[in-house]
Design a protein around this nucleic acid. Sequence first.
DNA 1: CTGAAAGCGCTTACAG
DNA 2: CTGAAAGCGCTTACAG
Lengths: 349, 349
Amino acid sequence: MAGLTIKDIARICDVSISTVSRAINNDPGINARTRERVLQVVKEFNYIPNNSARNLKMAESNTIVLLVKGINNPFFQSMFPYFQAGLEKEGYQYLLHTIDEDADEAYAAEEITKEKRLKGIIFLGGILDYPEVVLENIQVPAVLCSVAVASPVLDKAEPRISMVSIDDEAEAYKAVSYFCRKGHRRIAIIAGRKGDYTVGSRRLAGYRRALQDYGIPFDPELVGYQKEDLPEYSEANGYAAAMELLKSGRRFTAFFVISDRMAMGVYKAIYDTGKKIPEDYSVIGFDGIEAVRYMYPALTTMIQPARKMAQSSIDLLMDQINGDTRKKHVMYEAELHERDSVRTIEDKE
Amino acid sequence: MAGLTIKDIARICDVSISTVSRAINNDPGINARTRERVLQVVKEFNYIPNNSARNLKMAESNTIVLLVKGINNPFFQSMFPYFQAGLEKEGYQYLLHTIDEDADEAYAAEEITKEKRLKGIIFLGGILDYPEVVLENIQVPAVLCSVAVASPVLDKAEPRISMVSIDDEAEAYKAVSYFCRKGHRRIAIIAGRKGDYTVGSRRLAGYRRALQDYGIPFDPELVGYQKEDLPEYSEANGYAAAMELLKSGRRFTAFFVISDRMAMGVYKAIYDTGKKIPEDYSVIGFDGIEAVRYMYPALTTMIQPARKMAQSSIDLLMDQINGDTRKKHVMYEAELHERDSVRTIEDKE
DNA sequence: CTGAAAGCGCTTACAG
DNA sequence: CTGAAAGCGCTTACAG
């Protein structure tokens, strides 16, 4: 019922199914006229080959999957077009495969690898506790992009997996140092969830190190953790965490917010308490998503080089596909984009 | 090389492959102890069945795909969690399949239907010029959600396809009428691209009808079309179109913007020209995405009932799966959410 | 309850 | 250049 098979086309054309297969796969060893005739029928009857059968039989396909955990993350979303264009330029088919926030990326990767005969796979987002064993299992060229991994794998000299990332600790350090240089000394942070051991904790660590280097004591009361019951890194979570800080009575002049979406929530919290940006509170975000350029005032934020990160991921994957077995770790720097949400505090204040 | 097959597991367990298959598929006709033993080995060796083989053989799977055109559309994004939760609640596997802006949704649908033995498919976004023939071809329960279709299919009495939508013309009419009741008479619109014959043109039509009903002459100079060279419905496009209007020297007091993301761009254009919202310009958006609640001032917008639309799509699909062949068309109303971006113009002004 | 066998729709050596 | 045949890894009647 589900439609025509290669057999039907063969019968109609009065050739063997081998010939039909060769025609649709552009096999060089086929008479041009025969190919035309078959293709004509294929078109006319709107025949579409069954990919499952194809995947089952073929030694290898031409597709690369981008396995995304966190489809709602606008920073990841901003990378999709780059991945797509880049992979297409290399001549590969590109398949976006999304998994739930609570799904197991390792299992998902193995599953899809078995189903399709992938040329390669790029992990975007998520956490991999034992990346080497996962990559070992899937037996397919792979690279991790913005994936949180356990640190042992990150041996600089001899990385055991290919990955591209930023140094979350260092970038958070930059942002907070900037605040310090602008004269801020009471700086709040909207961090990860309590107990987070990935990106959130690394950015928090950078925050603490910056404070220390500038001789500012760390005040646990100035740390706003994301709520468990609100979506992670969402506007709502930024709003809730900021509101709590704002209402705590603690004095501070700046918010370092570890995601741009949360920064949008922070803006609203500030406005809702009748305060102004940057006069009363300065704000720095993280990610560099498109939307925050349009906030009022435009958000100063740490921009992750989305395009470069996507391109590097593709490059590292191509290296592997082309037989270069050396794994590489590309670490990018984020860039503080100064816009209008941070003010300078003069000494006399 | 790609890992264990069912044969390997059979050999290890010293049973036939039939038995392994029954164990992993929870077939009732199998000895409980045998099943345990097999499952134990499956787990230990981390065996994952090949889905292609499974799809090829099985009469029918348990999966439903959500075929999305426009992965970057935040309104669609906001529906993902509802689709996921709803479909899971019904006991189905849910697969998000995304296609490019310039891909052919009809072809994609046929392709995936052949590959997997789908229980059903939901189209989200995109355009279907001949929906009946497409749905006829795929031979699988299907519903269209927010898909632009040619009107003939929309016979109210006897719809030939199942779909859920809003009435774009009527909703735009509502928004613009609201402006009129608030005393605005010079109202600009940020519309679709020139030549758009789908959502954009319908909302523009609603705009024109509202003006007419309120005795306001239509002024083509107040229509800002989206630029061809900027992403559709993006902040950047809203910014560019609004800026052009703002600099044209035309007098007007309000912007009806047919997408929230564009409204974000409009905000910035207004601010960049040194004007205020809503004092100088009032703004109404369309969609009801999360982010615009956090704009300053909070955007008044037409909220599409994302949750209900997702749920209805699921319900219509379930009806078909359960054998009800009657097609239905569910039309929802959007709701104007009054926030802070529209001011009242007094008579004397 | 279990196994041997057929077959899903393709691709790809192998002969001719 | 073309066809007959094997086989990818499963599921599922059919026997026993």
